[in-house]
Design a protein around this nucleic acid. Sequence first.
DNA 1: TGTAATTAATTTACATGTAAACTATATTTG
DNA 2: CAAATATAGTTTACATGTAAATTAATTACA
Lengths: 150, 150
Amino acid sequence: MKFEESIKQETFSSPQIKALLNMMYTANWFMGKQTELLKPYKLSPQQYNVLRILRGSHPNKLTVHSIKERMLYKTPNMTRLVDKLIAQELVIREGCIEDRRVVYVGISQNGLDLMSQLDETLSVFDTILQTWGEEEAELISEAMDRLRTQ
Amino acid sequence: MKFEESIKQETFSSPQIKALLNMMYTANWFMGKQTELLKPYKLSPQQYNVLRILRGSHPNKLTVHSIKERMLYKTPNMTRLVDKLIAQELVIREGCIEDRRVVYVGISQNGLDLMSQLDETLSVFDTILQTWGEEEAELISEAMDRLRTQ
DNA sequence: TGTAATTAATTTACATGTAAACTATATTTG
DNA sequence: CAAATATAGTTTACATGTAAATTAATTACA
């Protein structure tokens, strides 16, 4: 369905506003899709994001701070989030000896296994994303950067 | 700052994935900006969205159901949201006589006044949005629609 | 007509987002 | 070196997102 039908608004004060609202709507739509696919695995998109980051750095562990930095979304309650991942035995937490304020978090074998399962589950997104051409995608990225940094 | 610096990730498996993540990141960034600007008025983006919808239909009142439909974001707890707007005396709620299940909500004079104040406060977004050209904006809208409906 | 199905909204319960206060440790500097 | 400052992470508190259960009224239909 077209955006303007979805929110039952036919006219917008400018194409730019329409594009922005459409972008916000689509981001939320995608988040919903992701939530749905992750639900059987008892993971939220945020938790999945952390697992992705940890897999990326594996076998190196990361500090809570540097995980935060890499996250797509605003700083949630990291301690709580990591607690839940530990409860599911997907990550490991260990203190640092040199600097005792620092806590390292790493992905566990369980976590790695789950992630490869998820790769398959989430591969539907690759298909969906094919509707964007490569050049088009680069254009979109560039437009997004420009909006934020202007 | 460019997206890849923001999340400290240099390479992506495809330009499409990068564009998608950038879009999600930017949507969240924008939401943050909006939250910030609305904070002095004790309004959340969701509440603002409802006020916009109600101003759009003014002087006609809308049912809770049709407000939901028009909202940009997934159905929150409408009753609670409207309760808060009523507590701030920005909207009015009244039952329907013909169908006693239905509840109408309309914007109050207070609400209208606040909205015109907000028009000024939020006009910074119009400036930011000028970084997108008209054609570019239409391209983005079209790409968003395509992603969801593919 | 009366029972079932549907619809509209509310209520409840719980997860997550978000900010602020707090604790512990490390670093800087007078 | 001691006090002040900065940093890392945790804890707490509250707002909001989200889904499911509930209530009430309406509509369909056997």
